[in-house]
Design a protein around this nucleic acid. Structure first.
Lengths: 210, 210
DNA sequence: TTAATTGGGTGACATATATCACACTACAAT
DNA sequence: ATTGTAGTGTGATATATGTCACCCAATTAA
């Protein structure tokens, strides 16, 4: 079960009443690694706050393509689910659990209410949107101006920052996240290996640049 | 000079005290069409609210490339300038006036203060971030999944929605906004003409599809 | 131990876009 | 009328990436 202590570690800037509200209204849910938590076009019925584990956020194409945008970690929230004035709002993003996760699901009817009641909630929402907006800007910068080799490096660095220098991803995983094909990634990784940036193993490689 | 009536038409959801605060603290500025209002990396010293005219927001590359993301119209605000807790925050976007414009410049020291004082300001900031976040998602969708011909159509439709079916842009203008070359745009527009989607003139063309 | 599956390597080729060179035309300036 | 300039059209070619075909090695399942 969830305690006020746990909450105050995850969300240190909240006022006391907000912790109580969460304990009363939020449901603590779990999901296995790999689960899809939110699909594009799906109706949003609750806000999502990460308690444990990591979530990956994607832009999704009608034809099945995906483009990875950013990670969500404990103490962070999915921006799109935070402000739903109307019911039946549809998700604009795809969210997947990377690891086994725990998250808080708060029915969206509390969103409007809490914005009124809790100043710290209000700040939390703004902070969330601001930082996600910045992530999207970085993503646009990559896709609009960089070639695949640079985007791959940027992608790997995001991974390394999250999980460390041993990158446990198959070439196919990476290709899916960057909306390209496995062959392209294989060739680019080979180049990186020649350049001495990585050491390759089956199913993984080590980032050793710098 | 700026009146409370004008303000209440532009920003209908604000509380009364906020109009007064604006009248006291904001400076009404003007800029000619084509002016650069904010460059990437530039220190943000004031928030920007559009009163008259249209602004275009870009992502900018170190090497001079630009990618158009969205328009800002009267009653809208530049999200990045709205939440600057620290001084010396650097702009992540490029903003240019498309038409002659008037805008309100509010020194950033009031941002934190007003978030505390005015609930309607708080909502305004959230609404701004939310809608800009959605624009960025659409932009990512275009660049990540679409070829240049589809992106060009999307681009033209944004223009048409803003300014009407007569598109007063040179091929070079469009190429700059989509970070490609004039030749590419020329050829694609020729195709659109063949398909009967547009009628071309010198310095402009008409969108007649559908 | 053998067979099947998954991850990866690589050549050949297709396509989209970028780049270069240059020609042409409408309009503006003189 | 002449000249200059900005906007446009278009072939030739280069490059990055996508696609197809197929192989091999490592791991797992039988």
């Amino acid at each position: 079960m969830l305690s006020k202590e746990t909450l105050s570690k995850l969300f240190p800037d909240w006022e006391d009443g907000l912790y109580d509200a969460i304990l009363n209204e939020a449901e603590l849910k779990e999901a296995k690694a790999g689960t899809t938590l939110l699909k594009m076009g799906q109706n949003i019925k609750s806000a999502m706050l990460v308690v444990e584990g990591t979530i990956k956020l994607y832009q999704e194409d009608e034809t099945g393509g995906e483009y990875f945008m950013y990670h969500l970690n404990p103490g962070e929230a999915c921006a799109v689910t935070l402000v739903c004035n109307y019911h039946h709002e549809q998700s604009q993003v795809l969210a997947k659990a990377v690891t086994d996760i725990q998250y808080l699901a708060i029915p969206i009817e509390f969103m409007e209410k809490w914005l009124n009641e809790f100043k710290s909630w209000h700040y939390f929402v703004i902070k969330t949107y601001r930082s996600r907006y910045e992530e999207l800007l970085k993503t646009i910068h990559e896709i609009a101006f960089k070639n695949m080799d640079e985007r791959l490096e940027f992608y790997i660095l995001k991974y390394v920052k999250q999980f460390g220098k041993i990158v446990n991803l198959t070439h196919q995983d990476i290709a899916n996240d960057l909306n390209t094909s496995r062959e392209v990634i294989s060739r680019l990784l080979k180049k990186m290996e020649h350049n001495g940036w990585i050491v390759m193993n089956r199913n993984s490689f080590d980032w050793i640049k710098k």
